[in-house]
Amino acid sequence: MIAILPIVIIVLILLFSIFLNYRVKILSGQKAQWLLFGYFIILVVSFGIYLFIPKGAPPSSEEQYKGPDLYLNAMEGNVSNIDSKYVERTWEFPMEEPELNVELDYIISDGPPVFVEEADIDSLEVILYKTPTIINGGIDITDRIPNASVQLTGSNKLQLYNPNPIEIEYSGYVPEFTLTQFKQGVSNSLRITGTFISFGDQILYIRVPQHIEVNTDSLEGIQFVGKENED
């Protein structure tokens, strides 16, 4: 709004200087009537077309999607509390070596946090948890967000990848301020844009058999569940 103010002022001054001297005359009578008629038709037709443009549904309420806090649950070793529907993918690798080297292919702050837990299992297990990202409480874009992935190279090198970030663009068709002014129970923040996004999360959760020693570069920021607390 602030940005268009100078334009508005310029237009205002122009209009005054052009029109104030004498009667407005852009076109003669007949042509002017055609212009008005044409404009009217275009507006009516565009209204018809608008109804058929595919549009994402508007928010039905202002309620944010509440998924579990993956990070907090993982930190505290409570992944069992996370509903299995948030398990996006699991990998299983048979482990023959006594050592496992975990390597991050990305800077930890740019991708999913990584947790390592020793468990009473026989093979190496990696779980990718993902909570949904939802726009306006209805448009689920979770599947458009690329997943982190895992690869076992050689016999004991576990590499963790984060795909290149993607940009997801939307056009938000905002009703004019006069249409939203009388909506009841709309918060002020929503009144401006009419959109809200519930951001989801991803974490990689690595479960290793108890007899295996896990090596990581301490700078990478991989967290050990349980062990950290004991120290």
Binding site: Y22, R23, K25, S28, G29, A32
Partner: peptide, 9 residues
């Protein structure tokens, strides 16, 4: 007289 009307109008 209005300049958007012709003499006849």
């Amino acid at each position: 007289f209005s300049n958007s009307l012709t003499l006849q109008e």
